[in-house]
């Protein structure tokens, strides 16, 4: 049980590195189209005897059938550490194409799109969490420390944000902002929206801690000894807040990743050609996709891995926090 936290942390770091270097790990760019292979199923990877080499066959589109057939006349070896123009972790020689998760309607590699999309969604979640916690901590500490009028004003304001189902608020706020933006701008916009909506809950938590914390004896003592407000906040109150904020982060990141996914799923998030987990899942809303192309579910299933590691992490952190508190 003691190992859960470090193990979870390692997994989490591993996953993030995976997505951070998705440009290298993914065999293709997220936008690269193969117009001869729209909606191709995942490439079958054949093993030749017990060799570590793997062979793959090129796809042939049939005019009559919606499916693809393997063209076994030529084999393409899957190479590791490809170095040609861009370097990639693995790849096949040119007319051949390896798509582990199949391709989408424009013949783009779903596996690459998953990696790029997960990077976008994850980092949107992390940045939004950071923003929400930063705002929340600042506002919560101000409210808790100064009390009275400042406190009640800020907390009423927080309640305004808590008074709305977040998904409604998300939709409404997204609707009023300009939609004419490049994917990068949209990305930051989403981060700001999600973060700016999310500050209220951590602010209330932090305020509670500060309220109880500033009555602690050593804080009172420091105050009597003439410590300045800033000093007390920085040296005595902030350390008490850290643990809570960290545990909150592990809880909030998956929530905010989900928020980004939901917005993109509803068509209000990052647009073409950038991939996001929400976009990828959104494709499944099309009847012909969900009924004909099972591999379009793969990104959704892979996504569970991310959420699982965050879940383990949040659990372990909370248990630890409880342990400290007791």
């Amino acid at each position: 049980m003691k190992l859960t936290l470090p193990l979870g942390l390692l997994t989490l770091i591993g996953i993030h590195l995976l997505f951070l270097f998705c440009g290298y790990i993914a065999p293709y760019d997220e936008a690269q189209q193969d117009r001869m292979a729209a909606f191709a199923p995942p490439t079958k990877v054949h093993l030749a005897r017990s060799y570590p080499y793997i062979y793959v066959c090129a796809w042939n589109a049939h005019e009559t059938d919606s499916g693809y057939d393997e063209d076994c006349s030529q084999k393409f070896a899957v190479h590791l550490f490809v170095n040609g123009g861009d370097s990639h972790l693995f790849g096949v020689a040119s007319p051949g194409r390896i798509s582990l998760f199949g391709t989408d309607g424009l013949g783009r590699d779903q596996f690459s799109r998953f990696l790029f999309g997960a990077r976008l969604s994850l980092f949107a979640g992390i940045l939004a969490t950071f923003l929400a916690l930063l705002l929340g901590t600042l506002i919560g500490m101000t409210a808790g420390f100064y009390g009275s009028f400042v406190d009640s004003t800020l907390m009423r304001f927080a309640e305004l944000f808590l008074a709305l189902p977040w998904i409604y608020l998300l939709l409404a706020v997204r609707a009023f902002l300009p939609l004419h933006l490049s994917p990068i701008q949209t990305f930051f916009l989403l981060v700001v929206i999600i973060g700016a909506i999310g500050w209220a809950r951590p602010a209330r938590l932090v305020r509670g801690i500060v309220l109880s914390g500033k009555e602690r004896n050593f804080v009172l003592a420091a105050k009597n000894l003439g410590a300045s407000n800033g000093y007390i906040l920085r040296r005595h109150i902030l350390p008490q807040v850290y643990g809570v904020v960290l545990a909150q982060a592990a809880l909030l990141v998956p929530q905010y990743v989900l928020a980004e996914i939901t917005l993109s799923f509803l068509g209000l998030g990052v647009g073409e050609p950038a991939a996001s987990l929400g976009n990828l899942l959104g494709e499944l809303q099309q009847y012909h996709v969900i009924s004909s192309y099972w591999w379009m579910f793969l990104p959704g299933i892979a996504l569970l891995l991310i959420f699982f590691s965050y879940f383990v992490m949040a659990n372990a952190l909370q248990r630890r926090l409880k342990f400290i508190a007791v």
């Binding site: 690269q32 189209q33 609707a175 933006l181 490049s182 994917p183 647009g271 073409e272 050609p273």
Partner: peptide, 17 residues
């Protein structure tokens, strides 16, 4: 967008409401 890349033009696609 992909086509115009071939003649050196960078295109952004912005789907909007």
């Amino acid at each position: 967008q992909q086509d115009l890349k071939d003649i050196g033009i960078t295109v952004q696609v912005v789907p909007m409401e």
